[in-house]
Computed example of a mutant assay.
Amino acid sequence: MKRPPGITPPPPPPPPAAEPSAERPKRAARAPRPTAATAPTQATAPTQAIDQTQPLDLTQPLDLTGSLGRTRSVKVPTAPVAPGTRGGTARPAASKRPSGPDAARQLRKATAARRRFERQEARRFTQRSRRRRITLLIVGGTLAGLVLVVLLTAYSPLLAVRQLAVEGTTRLDPAAVGTALDDQLGKPLALVDYGAIERDLAAFPYIESYSVEARPPDTLAVRVVERRPVALLQTAAGFDLIDAAGVVVQQSGERIPGFPVLDLTGTEVGSPGFQAAAAVLMSLPDSLLAQVDRISGTTPDSVTMVFSGAGQRVVWGDAEESELKAQILQKLIATQDPSLPVEYDVSSPQSPVIR
């Protein structure tokens, strides 16, 4: 049988080992390592360099040469190569791209979806700032609208003064006060001249204080607090009616009935004696005040009064506990004959004395 060229015959088998003898066998001498001179000459098969840059063709038999000089042909079974593969490795199939009108339609849909998503994201990230801006705009617009409505309403002729209401007068004539303030008629309520009102009311000495109130749509109300006259001061020209502060509210050539005459001998208006006498007159009830003919207060603790009629006299003392003294004096007067010249001493209200 002929061998294919390039394949060397296998080496001869080793000789059979000798049978062991009964005696202890001796170790066989180690055969010398063959050298280049003694090694049998063998024909070597030519080798072929492998080009690693080229793909390996697994469909062809491989030439494997062993160290013993044997050559075997091995054929590796391979699976059928599918189209679109290279070197046995499958490549992903290219997606089929649409073309023509379908491609343009899908591109427009994708572009619209992307823009819609971008707008949604932009709205989501700016939602807080938009809410704050909307709130500020609403609040600012509301305030501006209210200011505009107030201005248009306040300065409109619809809210002009057409009526004057004077309240709180007893001795004053309300018609005279209204006539003094008629220059405010026709003005809008927001443009009423309060300085002019003060100058006009200063001509009425009976007015101690006042307040002005605008009552939409067309009324201006003036509430007056009148002075309370308490005594008369006798002067060269007649009599001056004064209040507890010494302000003259009325002048007359004759004595005004219903008010006692204040004797300022040894004192003057505004002195401590004057203030004590005025405080006593302010604390007296109307029934007692109508009976007083004269009152004097040289010092703060020496206030005395003289009743009209029989000339009964009252020693009052200071202005402290005036209400209690007035109650005790009324009870003492009720026990006495008004025609007798009696003196009542209530300077110490806990122990009153009748002389």
Rank of each mutant, 00 (worst) to 15 (best):
Ala334Trp: 09
Ala196Arg: 12
Pro229Cys: 10
Val306Ile: 10
Val249Gly: 04
Gln163Ile: 04
Ala28Val: 12
Lys325Ser: 06
Glu19Cys: 09
Arg72Leu: 13
Ala196Cys: 02
Leu62Val: 12
Thr47His: 14
Val74Ile: 14
Asp286Glu: 14
Gly145Leu: 13
Ser129Met: 03
Ser351Gln: 14
Gln330Leu: 14
Gln127Ser: 14
Glu198Phe: 01
Gly309Ile: 04
Ser283Leu: 03
Val292Arg: 05
Ser347Ile: 00
Arg131Tyr: 08
Ala18Trp: 12
Gly87Leu: 08
Glu320Arg: 14
Lys2Val: 09
Ser211His: 08
Thr41Leu: 15
Gln327Cys: 01
Val177Tyr: 00
Leu56Pro: 01
Leu68Glu: 11
Leu220Gln: 00
Arg123Ile: 03
Ala290His: 03
Ser209Leu: 07
Gly66Asn: 09
Pro25Val: 00
Gly273Trp: 00
Thr298Ile: 07
Leu136Thr: 04
Ser283Lys: 07
Ala160Met: 10
Thr89Trp: 07
Arg86Ala: 04
Leu152Trp: 05
Ser95Thr: 11
Gln54Thr: 08
Gln312Trp: 01
Ala245Ile: 07
Gln42Phe: 13
Ile242Tyr: 04
Arg128Ile: 13
Ser322Val: 01
Ala104Val: 12
Pro16Gly: 05
Pro9Ala: 15
Thr85Glu: 13
Gln330Glu: 15
Pro83Gln: 09
Ser21Ile: 06
Glu23Val: 06
Thr304Ala: 11
Lys2Phe: 05
Thr71Ala: 06
Val212Phe: 04
Arg133Asp: 11
Tyr194Asn: 11
Ala310Glu: 03
Phe125Arg: 15
Pro216Glu: 06
Ala103Gly: 04
Ile138Leu: 12
Ala237Lys: 09
Gly238Gln: 02
Gly87Ala: 15
Ala110Leu: 14
Ser348His: 05
Phe274Val: 03
Arg24Phe: 03
Pro338Gly: 06
Phe125Cys: 01
Glu254Trp: 02
Leu288Gly: 03
Glu323Lys: 13
Lys2Thr: 05
Leu152Gln: 11
Ala278Ile: 06
Pro257Cys: 02
Ala22Glu: 14
Gly238Thr: 10
Leu324Lys: 13
Lys2Gln: 09
Val261Asn: 00
Arg72Ile: 06
Ala221Val: 02
Tyr210Asp: 06
Leu201Trp: 00
Pro92Lys: 12
Asp293Asn: 11
Val225Met: 05
